[in-house]
Amino acid sequence: MTTTTVGDVREALEDGFARQRGELVAHCYRMTGSVHDAEDLVQETYVRAWRAADGFEGRASLRTWLFRIATNVCLTFLEGRSRRPLPSALGQGAADPAREPVQDRAVDWMEPLPDAVLWSEPAPDPAESAATRDSVRLAFVAALQHLTARQRAVLLLREVLAWSAKETADALGLTVAGVNSTLQRARAAMDREAPAQDDPAPVDDPRTRDLLEAYVRAFEAYDVAAIVRLLAHDVLWEMPPYPEWYAGAPQVGRLISTWCPASGPGDMRLVPAGTANGVPAFGLYMRDADGVHRAFQLQQVWPTPDGDVSRVIAWFDVEALFDRFGLPAVWDDDAQATVGPAPVR
Protein backbone atom coordinates (compact mmCIF):
# COMPACT_ATOMS: atom_id res chain seq x y z
CA MET A 1 0.00 0.00 0.00
CA THR A 2 1.38 3.36 -1.03
CA THR A 3 1.30 6.15 1.56
CA THR A 4 0.85 9.70 0.27
CA THR A 5 3.03 12.15 2.18
CA VAL A 6 2.74 15.90 2.54
CA GLY A 7 5.79 16.13 0.30
CA ASP A 8 4.00 14.11 -2.38
CA VAL A 9 0.97 16.42 -2.19
CA ARG A 10 3.12 19.52 -2.41
CA GLU A 11 5.02 18.15 -5.38
CA ALA A 12 1.72 17.40 -7.12
CA LEU A 13 0.46 20.84 -6.10
CA GLU A 14 3.38 22.56 -7.81
CA ASP A 15 2.65 20.78 -11.08
CA GLY A 16 -1.14 20.93 -10.84
CA PHE A 17 -1.23 24.59 -9.89
CA ALA A 18 0.91 25.53 -12.88
CA ARG A 19 -1.44 23.66 -15.21
CA GLN A 20 -4.64 24.94 -13.60
CA ARG A 21 -3.59 28.54 -12.98
CA GLY A 22 -5.38 29.97 -16.03
CA GLU A 23 -8.62 28.22 -15.12
CA LEU A 24 -8.31 29.40 -11.52
CA VAL A 25 -7.79 33.01 -12.65
CA ALA A 26 -10.87 32.71 -14.86
CA HIS A 27 -12.90 31.34 -11.93
CA CYS A 28 -11.82 34.11 -9.55
CA TYR A 29 -12.40 36.70 -12.28
CA ARG A 30 -15.96 35.47 -12.76
CA MET A 31 -16.49 35.72 -9.01
CA THR A 32 -15.05 39.23 -8.63
CA GLY A 33 -15.19 40.98 -12.03
CA SER A 34 -11.58 42.08 -11.53
CA VAL A 35 -8.48 40.52 -13.09
CA HIS A 36 -6.27 42.28 -10.51
CA ASP A 37 -8.25 40.79 -7.63
CA ALA A 38 -8.42 37.42 -9.40
CA GLU A 39 -4.64 37.16 -9.67
CA ASP A 40 -4.22 38.05 -5.98
CA LEU A 41 -6.86 35.51 -4.97
CA VAL A 42 -5.27 32.75 -7.02
CA GLN A 43 -1.99 33.41 -5.24
CA GLU A 44 -3.83 33.23 -1.91
CA THR A 45 -5.35 29.94 -3.06
CA TYR A 46 -1.88 28.52 -3.66
CA VAL A 47 -0.67 29.66 -0.23
CA ARG A 48 -3.66 28.09 1.51
CA ALA A 49 -3.31 24.86 -0.46
CA TRP A 50 0.39 24.65 0.41
CA ARG A 51 -0.31 25.15 4.10
CA ALA A 52 -3.18 22.63 4.06
CA ALA A 53 -1.30 19.93 2.15
CA ASP A 54 -1.40 17.58 5.14
CA GLY A 55 -5.21 17.72 5.01
CA PHE A 56 -5.50 16.59 1.39
CA GLU A 57 -6.70 12.99 1.51
CA GLY A 58 -7.11 12.38 -2.20
CA ARG A 59 -10.86 11.79 -2.01
CA ALA A 60 -11.29 14.36 -4.78
CA SER A 61 -8.92 15.34 -7.55
CA LEU A 62 -6.28 17.98 -6.94
CA ARG A 63 -8.12 20.21 -9.44
CA THR A 64 -11.37 19.93 -7.47
CA TRP A 65 -9.51 20.62 -4.23
CA LEU A 66 -7.92 23.77 -5.67
CA PHE A 67 -11.22 25.09 -6.99
CA ARG A 68 -12.85 24.43 -3.64
CA ILE A 69 -10.16 26.48 -1.90
CA ALA A 70 -10.33 29.23 -4.54
CA THR A 71 -14.10 29.53 -4.23
CA ASN A 72 -13.94 29.96 -0.48
CA VAL A 73 -11.06 32.44 -0.80
CA CYS A 74 -13.29 34.49 -3.12
CA LEU A 75 -16.26 34.29 -0.75
CA THR A 76 -14.16 35.57 2.13
CA PHE A 77 -12.76 38.36 -0.04
CA LEU A 78 -16.23 39.46 -1.20
CA GLU A 79 -17.68 39.81 2.30
CA GLY A 80 -18.86 43.40 2.72
CA ARG A 81 -17.77 44.43 -0.78
CA SER A 82 -20.12 45.94 -3.33
CA ARG A 83 -20.42 44.48 -6.81
CA ARG A 84 -18.28 45.73 -9.69
CA PRO A 85 -20.57 47.26 -12.32
CA LEU A 86 -20.33 48.62 -15.82
CA PRO A 87 -21.81 52.09 -16.41
CA SER A 88 -24.84 50.71 -18.27
CA ALA A 89 -25.71 48.57 -15.23
CA LEU A 90 -26.04 51.48 -12.80
CA GLY A 91 -29.72 51.95 -13.56
CA GLN A 92 -29.49 55.36 -15.15
CA GLY A 93 -30.47 56.12 -18.73
CA ALA A 94 -28.18 56.88 -21.63
CA ALA A 95 -26.33 60.17 -21.20
CA ASP A 96 -26.56 63.34 -23.26
CA PRO A 97 -23.29 63.71 -25.22
CA ALA A 98 -23.59 67.50 -24.97
CA ARG A 99 -22.83 67.25 -21.24
CA GLU A 100 -19.23 66.75 -20.18
CA PRO A 101 -18.55 63.28 -18.72
CA VAL A 102 -17.19 63.27 -15.16
CA GLN A 103 -15.16 60.39 -13.72
CA ASP A 104 -16.33 58.53 -10.61
CA ARG A 105 -13.31 56.93 -8.96
CA ALA A 106 -15.32 55.97 -5.86
CA VAL A 107 -16.84 53.03 -7.76
CA ASP A 108 -14.93 49.77 -8.12
CA TRP A 109 -15.59 49.16 -11.81
CA MET A 110 -15.40 45.88 -13.68
CA GLU A 111 -12.15 45.20 -15.50
CA PRO A 112 -11.36 43.61 -18.87
CA LEU A 113 -9.63 40.24 -18.88
CA PRO A 114 -6.80 39.79 -21.43
CA ASP A 115 -7.24 36.41 -23.12
CA ALA A 116 -3.47 35.96 -22.96
CA VAL A 117 -3.72 35.72 -19.17
CA LEU A 118 -5.78 32.54 -19.55
CA TRP A 119 -4.55 30.98 -22.76
CA SER A 120 -0.87 31.74 -23.04
CA GLU A 121 -0.41 27.97 -22.86
CA PRO A 122 -2.51 25.31 -24.66
CA ALA A 123 -5.38 23.99 -22.57
CA PRO A 124 -5.00 20.38 -21.42
CA ASP A 125 -8.61 19.69 -22.45
CA PRO A 126 -10.07 21.56 -25.48
CA ALA A 127 -13.61 21.00 -24.19
CA GLU A 128 -12.75 22.71 -20.90
CA SER A 129 -11.12 25.56 -22.82
CA ALA A 130 -14.24 26.19 -24.91
CA ALA A 131 -16.46 26.29 -21.82
CA THR A 132 -14.06 28.68 -20.09
CA ARG A 133 -13.99 31.07 -23.06
CA ASP A 134 -17.78 31.23 -23.14
CA SER A 135 -17.92 31.84 -19.42
CA VAL A 136 -15.64 34.90 -19.43
CA ARG A 137 -17.70 36.79 -22.00
CA LEU A 138 -18.18 40.26 -20.58
CA ALA A 139 -22.00 40.15 -20.64
CA PHE A 140 -21.99 36.94 -18.59
CA VAL A 141 -19.47 38.19 -16.03
CA ALA A 142 -21.33 41.51 -15.75
CA ALA A 143 -24.60 39.67 -15.10
CA LEU A 144 -22.92 37.59 -12.40
CA GLN A 145 -22.14 40.79 -10.50
CA HIS A 146 -25.88 41.19 -9.81
CA LEU A 147 -25.91 37.97 -7.78
CA THR A 148 -24.87 37.57 -4.17
CA ALA A 149 -21.42 36.10 -3.71
CA ARG A 150 -22.87 32.74 -2.64
CA GLN A 151 -25.23 32.67 -5.61
CA ARG A 152 -22.28 33.32 -7.93
CA ALA A 153 -20.33 30.49 -6.31
CA VAL A 154 -23.19 28.00 -6.61
CA LEU A 155 -23.99 28.95 -10.20
CA LEU A 156 -20.36 28.71 -11.29
CA LEU A 157 -19.64 25.45 -9.53
CA ARG A 158 -22.81 23.81 -10.82
CA GLU A 159 -23.07 25.22 -14.35
CA VAL A 160 -19.55 26.21 -15.39
CA LEU A 161 -17.46 23.62 -13.57
CA ALA A 162 -20.29 21.03 -13.77
CA TRP A 163 -20.02 19.95 -10.15
CA SER A 164 -22.80 17.89 -8.63
CA ALA A 165 -25.12 19.39 -6.03
CA LYS A 166 -23.42 17.19 -3.40
CA GLU A 167 -19.91 18.35 -4.38
CA THR A 168 -21.06 21.97 -4.31
CA ALA A 169 -22.75 21.54 -0.94
CA ASP A 170 -19.62 19.99 0.56
CA ALA A 171 -17.43 22.81 -0.81
CA LEU A 172 -19.62 25.61 0.50
CA GLY A 173 -20.88 24.12 3.75
CA LEU A 174 -24.48 23.93 2.52
CA THR A 175 -27.10 21.21 2.26
CA VAL A 176 -28.00 19.79 -1.14
CA ALA A 177 -31.44 21.39 -0.77
CA GLY A 178 -29.73 24.70 -0.01
CA VAL A 179 -27.57 24.42 -3.12
CA ASN A 180 -30.62 23.66 -5.29
CA SER A 181 -32.65 26.58 -3.95
CA THR A 182 -29.68 28.95 -4.28
CA LEU A 183 -29.11 27.81 -7.85
CA GLN A 184 -32.78 28.40 -8.66
CA ARG A 185 -32.60 31.96 -7.34
CA ALA A 186 -29.34 32.59 -9.18
CA ARG A 187 -30.79 31.38 -12.49
CA ALA A 188 -33.86 33.60 -12.01
CA ALA A 189 -31.65 36.62 -11.33
CA MET A 190 -29.53 35.91 -14.42
CA ASP A 191 -32.70 35.61 -16.52
CA ARG A 192 -33.88 38.98 -15.22
CA GLU A 193 -30.60 40.58 -16.16
CA ALA A 194 -30.89 39.01 -19.63
CA PRO A 195 -27.31 39.84 -20.65
CA ALA A 196 -27.05 41.09 -24.20
CA GLN A 197 -25.61 38.62 -26.67
CA ASP A 198 -22.01 39.68 -27.07
CA ASP A 199 -20.59 36.88 -29.21
CA PRO A 200 -18.38 38.76 -31.67
CA ALA A 201 -17.72 37.90 -35.28
CA PRO A 202 -14.59 35.71 -35.53
CA VAL A 203 -11.46 37.84 -35.62
CA ASP A 204 -9.94 35.63 -38.30
CA ASP A 205 -12.85 36.30 -40.66
CA PRO A 206 -11.60 38.54 -43.53
CA ARG A 207 -14.68 40.76 -43.15
CA THR A 208 -13.90 41.29 -39.48
CA ARG A 209 -10.31 42.17 -40.26
CA ASP A 210 -11.47 44.65 -42.90
CA LEU A 211 -13.87 46.20 -40.39
CA LEU A 212 -11.20 46.54 -37.70
CA GLU A 213 -8.69 48.00 -40.15
CA ALA A 214 -11.28 50.57 -41.26
CA TYR A 215 -12.03 51.32 -37.59
CA VAL A 216 -8.34 51.98 -36.88
CA ARG A 217 -8.01 54.19 -39.98
CA ALA A 218 -11.08 56.22 -39.01
CA PHE A 219 -9.75 56.95 -35.53
CA GLU A 220 -6.24 57.76 -36.69
CA ALA A 221 -7.66 60.16 -39.28
CA TYR A 222 -10.00 61.59 -36.63
CA ASP A 223 -12.79 61.09 -39.17
CA VAL A 224 -15.86 61.11 -36.94
CA ALA A 225 -18.25 60.56 -39.84
CA ALA A 226 -16.31 57.43 -40.83
CA ILE A 227 -16.33 56.20 -37.23
CA VAL A 228 -20.10 56.65 -37.05
CA ARG A 229 -20.61 54.73 -40.31
CA LEU A 230 -18.76 51.75 -38.82
CA LEU A 231 -20.96 51.66 -35.71
CA ALA A 232 -24.24 49.77 -35.47
CA HIS A 233 -27.22 52.11 -35.30
CA ASP A 234 -27.92 51.00 -31.71
CA VAL A 235 -24.27 50.76 -30.62
CA LEU A 236 -23.53 50.86 -26.88
CA TRP A 237 -20.55 52.99 -25.78
CA GLU A 238 -19.16 52.93 -22.22
CA MET A 239 -16.10 54.55 -20.61
CA PRO A 240 -15.26 53.36 -17.05
CA PRO A 241 -14.58 55.16 -14.70
CA TYR A 242 -17.04 57.59 -16.30
CA PRO A 243 -20.54 56.53 -15.17
CA GLU A 244 -22.13 57.97 -18.31
CA TRP A 245 -22.94 55.59 -21.16
CA TYR A 246 -24.22 56.32 -24.66
CA ALA A 247 -26.61 54.59 -27.02
CA GLY A 248 -26.76 55.00 -30.78
CA ALA A 249 -24.20 55.86 -33.43
CA PRO A 250 -25.25 59.53 -33.83
CA GLN A 251 -24.92 60.09 -30.07
CA VAL A 252 -21.49 58.50 -29.99
CA GLY A 253 -20.44 60.66 -32.91
CA ARG A 254 -21.50 63.78 -31.02
CA LEU A 255 -19.66 62.57 -27.93
CA ILE A 256 -16.40 62.12 -29.85
CA SER A 257 -16.78 65.40 -31.75
CA THR A 258 -17.46 67.35 -28.55
CA TRP A 259 -15.14 65.86 -25.95
CA CYS A 260 -12.32 63.96 -27.68
CA PRO A 261 -9.03 65.86 -27.18
CA ALA A 262 -7.93 65.11 -30.75
CA SER A 263 -8.11 67.96 -33.23
CA GLY A 264 -7.08 66.33 -36.50
CA PRO A 265 -5.43 63.43 -38.34
CA GLY A 266 -2.40 61.94 -36.63
CA ASP A 267 -3.43 62.95 -33.12
CA MET A 268 -4.44 59.37 -32.28
CA ARG A 269 -2.77 56.02 -32.71
CA LEU A 270 -4.88 52.86 -32.28
CA VAL A 271 -2.66 49.85 -31.62
CA PRO A 272 -3.92 46.23 -31.62
CA ALA A 273 -3.52 44.61 -28.20
CA GLY A 274 -4.79 41.08 -28.73
CA THR A 275 -8.20 40.08 -27.40
CA ALA A 276 -9.93 40.51 -24.06
CA ASN A 277 -13.08 38.67 -22.97
CA GLY A 278 -13.04 37.20 -26.47
CA VAL A 279 -13.18 40.50 -28.38
CA PRO A 280 -10.46 42.62 -30.05
CA ALA A 281 -8.68 45.15 -27.85
CA PHE A 282 -6.78 48.29 -28.89
CA GLY A 283 -4.58 50.72 -27.04
CA LEU A 284 -5.43 54.30 -27.99
CA TYR A 285 -2.61 56.83 -27.76
CA MET A 286 -3.34 60.59 -27.81
CA ARG A 287 -0.81 63.15 -28.98
CA ASP A 288 -0.05 65.74 -26.32
CA ALA A 289 0.96 69.36 -26.85
CA ASP A 290 4.62 68.24 -26.88
CA GLY A 291 3.93 65.97 -29.85
CA VAL A 292 4.26 62.70 -27.89
CA HIS A 293 1.58 60.00 -28.17
CA ARG A 294 0.74 58.87 -24.64
CA ALA A 295 -1.59 56.14 -23.35
CA PHE A 296 -5.14 57.47 -23.30
CA GLN A 297 -7.61 54.57 -23.20
CA LEU A 298 -7.90 50.87 -23.94
CA GLN A 299 -10.82 49.90 -26.16
CA GLN A 300 -12.67 46.62 -26.39
CA VAL A 301 -14.52 46.45 -29.72
CA TRP A 302 -17.37 44.07 -30.58
CA PRO A 303 -17.43 43.40 -34.36
CA THR A 304 -20.64 41.81 -35.66
CA PRO A 305 -21.27 39.41 -38.57
CA ASP A 306 -23.20 42.30 -40.15
CA GLY A 307 -19.96 44.21 -40.63
CA ASP A 308 -20.36 46.88 -37.97
CA VAL A 309 -19.43 47.47 -34.32
CA SER A 310 -22.17 46.80 -31.78
CA ARG A 311 -20.38 47.82 -28.60
CA VAL A 312 -17.27 49.65 -27.43
CA ILE A 313 -15.91 49.89 -23.91
CA ALA A 314 -13.17 52.48 -23.57
CA TRP A 315 -11.30 51.81 -20.32
CA PHE A 316 -9.42 54.75 -18.85
CA ASP A 317 -7.36 53.08 -16.10
CA VAL A 318 -4.43 53.24 -18.48
CA GLU A 319 -1.50 52.78 -16.09
CA ALA A 320 -2.62 49.32 -14.99
CA LEU A 321 -4.28 48.26 -18.23
CA PHE A 322 -1.53 49.12 -20.69
CA ASP A 323 1.02 47.25 -18.61
CA ARG A 324 -1.32 44.24 -18.32
CA PHE A 325 -1.84 44.18 -22.08
CA GLY A 326 1.86 44.54 -22.81
CA LEU A 327 1.53 48.04 -24.26
CA PRO A 328 4.09 50.83 -23.72
CA ALA A 329 3.04 54.02 -21.95
CA VAL A 330 4.32 56.09 -24.89
CA TRP A 331 3.96 55.24 -28.57
CA ASP A 332 6.73 56.21 -30.95
CA ASP A 333 6.04 55.24 -34.57
CA ASP A 334 9.73 54.94 -35.43
CA ALA A 335 10.76 53.05 -32.27
CA GLN A 336 7.81 50.65 -32.33
CA ALA A 337 8.08 49.90 -36.06
CA THR A 338 10.96 47.50 -35.37
CA VAL A 339 8.85 45.56 -32.85
CA GLY A 340 5.34 46.02 -34.19
CA PRO A 341 2.06 46.09 -32.28
CA ALA A 342 0.52 43.02 -30.73
CA PRO A 343 -1.46 40.99 -33.28
CA VAL A 344 -5.24 40.81 -33.20
CA ARG A 345 -5.82 37.22 -32.11
Rank of each mutant, 00 (worst) to 15 (best):
M110W: 01
D210P: 02
R133S: 12
A247K: 09
L327Y: 02
G80F: 01
D37E: 06
T132G: 07
W163C: 14
D334L: 12
E111A: 04
A289Q: 09
L78K: 12
R30S: 08
P240Q: 00
G248D: 11
R10K: 13
A26L: 02
T3K: 13
P341Q: 08
R21F: 05
S164W: 09
W259P: 08
S82L: 13
L157A: 15
A335Y: 11
F67G: 00
L255C: 06
A53E: 03
L13T: 11
P280F: 09
Q20N: 11
W245D: 12
D290N: 09
A214H: 10
A262S: 15
L24H: 03
P250R: 09
G266V: 02
T258D: 03
L270T: 13
A149I: 11
L174E: 08
L118G: 04
D198A: 00
V73H: 04
V179K: 05
L321V: 02
W331E: 01
A247G: 01
R217N: 06
S61E: 08
D37A: 13
P202Q: 05
L321P: 03
A38T: 05
A38F: 05
L13V: 08
R345P: 15
L183Y: 11
L156Y: 10
F219R: 04
A189M: 11
V309S: 03
R68F: 02
Q197D: 08
P265F: 06
F282C: 06
W315E: 04
Y242W: 13
R229Q: 14
S129Q: 15
F17D: 03
D210T: 14
R30F: 01
W259R: 11
D96C: 12
L284D: 06
V301P: 07
T175W: 11
R294P: 04
A225V: 09
L75Q: 08
N180D: 15
R311F: 07
R207E: 15
P272I: 07
R81I: 03
V252W: 04
P112Q: 00
P343F: 02
G58Y: 03
Q336S: 08
G173S: 03
Q43A: 15
C28V: 10
M239Y: 02
L284R: 09
E167C: 05
R84W: 02
A123T: 08
T258L: 12
D288Q: 10
A89P: 04
V279D: 00
R254A: 15
P87G: 06
D290Y: 10
H293K: 06
Q103I: 08
D306S: 10
L66K: 01
N277H: 06
V312C: 01
M286W: 00
A70F: 00
T4C: 10
L147V: 09
Q151E: 15
T258A: 13
A18N: 14
G307S: 04
R10E: 12
V136D: 01
T175G: 15
Q299T: 00
Q299Y: 05
A95M: 07
G291C: 04
W50V: 08
A116E: 15
P202G: 04
E121R: 13
I256Y: 01
F219L: 04
G326I: 07
V252Q: 09
V203F: 01
E319F: 13
L212I: 07
P250K: 05
A60K: 13
D317G: 13
I227N: 12
M268S: 07
L183G: 04
P343R: 12
R19E: 14
P87I: 06
M190H: 03
Q251V: 08
L75M: 01
H146L: 10
V216N: 06
E111G: 03
